[in-house]
Design a protein around this nucleic acid. Structure first.
Length: 433
RNA sequence: GGAAGGGUGGCUGAGUGGUCUAAGGCGCCUGACUCGAAAUCAGGAGAUGGGGUAACUCAUCCGCAGGUUCGAUUCCUGUCCCUUCCGCCA
């Protein structure tokens, strides 16, 4: 969440940057400020009363020690009234504090100054393009057709098992998926300096709030319950990304400065309900309710976070370079950025069968927005507690990478060549007809 | 799921209604001693929020949330987590 002190001191700036996002959140600033002022006023009042009561209680103790019981009783009666007022005021303080914080949790991060103001994908600047788009002597097939003919994914049975948007990978398709996971984890853990972790695929509500999924995007999550016990519903949620568990690894901790930077990579399946997304454009593997992803998370000092963001994007790009896939990197404009991000690069891979770029990675610097939500801090050498910056990047999402690979490396006879970097994991150099 | 025990500062560990301003120990920092270090001695050191230019000051924090009381680390209720044993289970 945003720092209430920043909102107090620079409300105009906050309003302007929120307006640039185009979601109307700037109106919440005045509301937050009003609640904050009310809270501080009530707090000053109740704390003065508490100081008064503390003094009185001490005196009563002394009177009782001196056996001045009648006097002590008299003091007790008057002090009891102070107690009643404290109880009432305390409730008001926590009331305005809760209202303020509920509002703060629904205000997105402020875009970094280097992010261009814009409304739609058309306003996203292309930062760089890499690789050649392959040319075919035949009409390239869509991944759907390739999957059917090579029996890599059984769409019909996936839907039978769990409904539309769920995939059943079969035989060489399942192996290719597994090969990609292995390849990505090996790459990032051995070449890019990330510590591999394997997190829970269910997380608490607090974790979801910590990374900014909740409260605003609760409709996009799958909530689980234990058996028929409805009382357990809402305690755990299927992870929408490994970011949810991994970024929260150190929640509520105070790290030592020399522990930073922390870099984690993790594989997880990702579950997204995406309410209302069913219908046209949801066929195939581009947009599904469950997909695999290897995620990169960094917890770094604020002064290095933007350098790290560039490197993080580079780590995701390395994946596509090693696989020989053409891609482009775009900078998301203010209107396109995710809720928690201050700056985001999207990496899009070229899918010849689709004739379009597919987003396979999103690399974001959330600055201290998430650290604040999860109360993660680090102690500087000077002894101050500060919020670290948290970055996340897909390294990369798999279903769409799978699509791009098939479409990119398809041959005239309908087979698919496996790029060299993947062959040791696939234990094959081609998927034959 | 059942039973028992336990959650106190960086760690360990005392504290069963009022100097708890949380003992003691370990570790840490500063100073003294020393050429330097060790040992020893003296001192220091938590978090969050409010007020103040500042020195400083007030409040809150002993897993969490309530309750009793003038006053709660201490008593009561609920809840979460951990440990051990039993049951179930990949």
């Amino acid at each position: 969440m945003l720092d209430i002190k920043v909102i107090r001191e620079k409300p105009d700036w906050a309003r302007r940057r929120l307006a640039d996002r185009g979601a109307g959140d700037e109106a919440k600033i005045d509301e937050v400020l009003a609640l904050d002022e009310q809270r501080r006023k009530l707090l000053a009042e109740v704390e003065a009363l508490k100081a008064q009561r503390n003094r009185a209680s001490k005196e009563i103790g002394a009177l009782m020690g001196q056996k001045k019981l009648a006097e002590a009783e008299a003091r007790k009666r008057e002090t009891r009234e102070i107690g009643d007022r404290i109880t009432a005021l305390d409730q008001q303080v926590s009331g305005s504090e809760q209202s303020r914080d509920q509002l703060l949790l629904r205000i997105p991060n402020l875009p970094h100054e280097s992010v261009v103001t814009g409304k739609s994908a058309d306003d996203n600047p292309v930062i760089r393009v890499w690789g050649e788009q392959p040319q075919f002597a035949f009409k390239p097939k869509s991944h759907l057709e390739l999957c059917e003919r090579l029996k890599l994914v059984d769409f019909a049975r996936g839907a039978k098992l769990a409904g539309s948007g769920f995939l059943l990978y079969t035989d060489r398709g399942a192996r290719l998926e597994r090969a990609l996971i292995q390849f990505l984890l090996d790459l990032h853990s051995t070449q890019h300096g990330y510590t591999e972790v394997s997190p829970p695929y269910l997380v608490s509500r607090d974790c979801m709030v910590g990374v900014g999924q909740f409260p605003k995007f609760i409709d996009q999550a799958y909530a689980v319950q234990e058996g028929e016990d409805a009382g357990t519903l809402g305690k755990l949620y299927l992870v929408p990304t490994a970011e949810a568990p991994v970024a929260n690894i150190h929640r509520d901790e105070i790290l030592k400065e020399n522990q930073l930077p922390l870099r984690y990579c993790a594989y997880s399946p990702c579950f997204r309900a995406e309410a209302g997304a069913a219908g046209v454009g949801t066929r195939g593997m581009i947009r599904v309710h469950q997909f695999d992803k290897v995620e990169l998370i960094q917890i770094v000092k604020p002064e290095t976070s933007y350098d790290e963001l560039e490197k993080l994007a580079g780590h995701a790009e390395t994946v596509l370079r090693l696989l020989g896939l053409s891609y482009r990197v775009i900078l998301l404009c203010t209107g396109e950025m995710g809720f928690t991000s201050a700056k985001t690069y999207d990496i899009e891979v070229w899918a010849p069968g689709q004739g379009q770029y597919l987003e396979v990675s999103s690399c974001s610097n959330c600055e201290d927005y998430q650290a604040r939500r999860m109360n993660l801090r680090y102690k500087t050498e000077a002894g101050d507690n500060r919020f670290p910056h948290i970055l996340n990047g897909s390294g990369t999402a798999l279903a769409r990478l799978f699509v791009a690979l098939l479409e990119h490396y398809q041959q005239a006879d309908g087979s698919v060549v496996i790029p060299a970097a993947l062959q040791p994991y696939m234990k094959a150099d081609r998927i034959g007809v």
